[in-house]
């Protein structure tokens, strides 16, 4: 929205954070943490996505309707993942 402009420095700061997180996710992948590898990878990815959404896409400064729309997309994704996986994870354990 026009109401709020983020300073240019803020964009560079976010970009630096994203690059640091990228380096972090690659280096963590080289450490064997068993099942925690994917958890860490996904956590870092989610943090990166949130940074992009909040700052590059200005959602932090957007109206409530925008927040609702963004959340709805991810909430529906969560519905699909949860209910489908509820079948997959219980199917083979007779």
């Amino acid at each position: 929205m026009t109401g709020h402009t983020i300073s240019r420095n803020r964009y560079f700061l976010i970009f630096a954070a994203l690059i640091v997180l990228l380096v972090l996710t690659i280096s963590m992948a080289y450490v064997d943490l068993g099942p925690f590898n994917i958890i860490i990878a996904l956590t870092i990815a989610i943090i990166k996505a949130v940074l992009v959404i909040l700052y590059f896409m200005h959602v932090r400064y957007s109206s409530r309707v925008t927040w609702v729309f963004v959340s709805a997309g991810f909430f529906w994704l969560l519905i699909m993942f949860t209910l489908t996986m509820s079948d997959i994870v219980t199917r083979f354990s007779f």
Partner: peptide
Amino acid sequence: WGHHMFVSGQSVYA
């Protein structure tokens, strides 16, 4: 949606 799949081989718990 899973109620379309009761006899499909979907897990009984689901």
